[in-house]
């Protein structure tokens, strides 16, 4: 600013077309286009109209704020009354939106239509020489000298020590968010499944007979021992690791099994961990005819016929399979824990 000296704000262009300073370039600087007065500059009526527009926008803002308070205080929401809750939400949302937008749009319209709109050229400061750089370097050096940090190593060393130690409380605080004894990646390695533990339905807890599953069935199962875990948080944590999807397929549909897994399924019943090996979403979108399992988060697809091999998507390895069989009474039981950690691949597994 500063090139518009005297006269009113709308006194005209500072530089007119054709007055561009000769710059030595092939094409001369044409300067600014001629200033064109706005309707509101020339016509007092138009200016009045713009004024009314702006104040109307501010008024909308005021109404919006009032709407917010009406919604907040006057609309009584009783438990279970969703109609009133909906009305309240609408009033709160629209009220705040009008209150903010009204002020914002009003100020912009004010600036566009009424405030002076003369053009101004501000030249870029010419780049300065090496001397300036040396001057800046000298200033910094002076500051360093004045702190006396070089002369007094005790100051420097204690500062370094303090700065190194200061973040440690944060480490301790975060570490103490979980004080359990098995803290660390090891706890992700094992789940509650072990030999002889019955598979029970989630959430009812009833045991599952092999004959309960018809071909094409899908059952969500948890270990029976889960109910013995005390503490809601611990139970949820154990459940999150141990959840299993049980499906029964036509036994002819299975691909040949890997050696060592021959007795992992019972008839056509096969069980897998529901925790996706990508980032741990629950994989349970089961298609009975294609026997594909789809993860809803990133579309990793696993094939139940091929021991839950990844056939599409970002997951890095198959879903862990739970070895199962039946006990004397015909209920499904686990043969052992999962033979590999469930869930997303973590650093130790590479």
């Amino acid at each position: 600013m500063g090139e518009h000296g005297n006269g009113g704000p709308n006194s005209g262009a500072v530089i007119k077309a054709g007055e561009g300073r000769s710059s030595g370039y092939a094409i001369d600087n044409p300067g600014l286009p001629p200033h064109r007065p706005r309707l509101s500059d020339a016509d007092e009526k138009a200016a009045k109209r713009a004024e009314r527009q702006v104040s109307a926008l501010f008024l909308i803002s005021i109404i919006g704020t009032v709407m917010f308070f009406v919604g907040y205080f006057a609309v009584g929401v009783t438990a279970g009354d969703l109609q009133m809750l909906r009305l309240q939400n609408t009033l709160l949302g629209l009220g705040v939106a009008f209150a903010m937008l009204g002020i914002g749009l009003g100020v912009v319209q004010w600036a566009r239509a009424l405030m002076p709109d003369h053009e101004v050229i501000e030249d870029r400061k010419p780049l300065r020489k090496e001397a300036d750089r040396a001057e800046a370097a000298q200033t910094i050096n002076e500051i360093v000298d004045e702190t006396q940090i070089k002369r007094r190593p005790l100051l420097r060393n204690t500062l370094i020590g303090a700065a190194l130690l200061a973040p440690l409380p944060a480490v301790i605080v975060f570490r103490d968010l979980d004080r359990s004894e098995d803290f660390g990646p090891e706890r992700m390695r094992h789940t509650m499944w072990e030999e002889g533990v019955r598979l029970v339905r989630d959430p009812t807890g009833t045991p599952i007979r092999a004959s309960d599953l018809t071909v094409g069935s899908a059952v969500h199962a948890i270990p029976e021992t889960l109910r013995e875990v005390s503490g809601h948080g611990d139970r949820l944590a154990e459940k999150a690791k141990a959840v299993v999807l049980l499906i029964r397929m036509n036994p002819d549909d299975f691909e040949p099994v890997t050696p060592g897994r021959e007795d992992w399924k019972y008839e056509g019943i096969i069980a897998c961990s529901k925790v996706c090996t990508h980032v741990g979403c629950p994989v349970a979108l089961y298609e009975r005819h294609t026997h594909h399992l789809l993860c809803p988060c990133h579309q990793s697809t696993f094939d139940a016929a091929e021991e839950f091999k990844v056939i599409f998507g970002p997951a890095g390895r198959p879903l862990p399979q739970l070895p199962i069989t039946v006990d004397d009474e015909g209920f499904l039981i686990a043969r052992s824990d999962f033979t590999e950690p469930v869930g997303p691949t973590y650093w130790e597994r590479g």
Binding site: S211, T214, G216, S217, Y286
Partner: peptide, 11 residues
């Protein structure tokens, strides 16, 4: 129906 798994009465 179709690709939906079956949820029979024992499940």
């Amino acid at each position: 129906p179709q690709n939906m798994p079956e949820f029979n009465d024992s499940n």
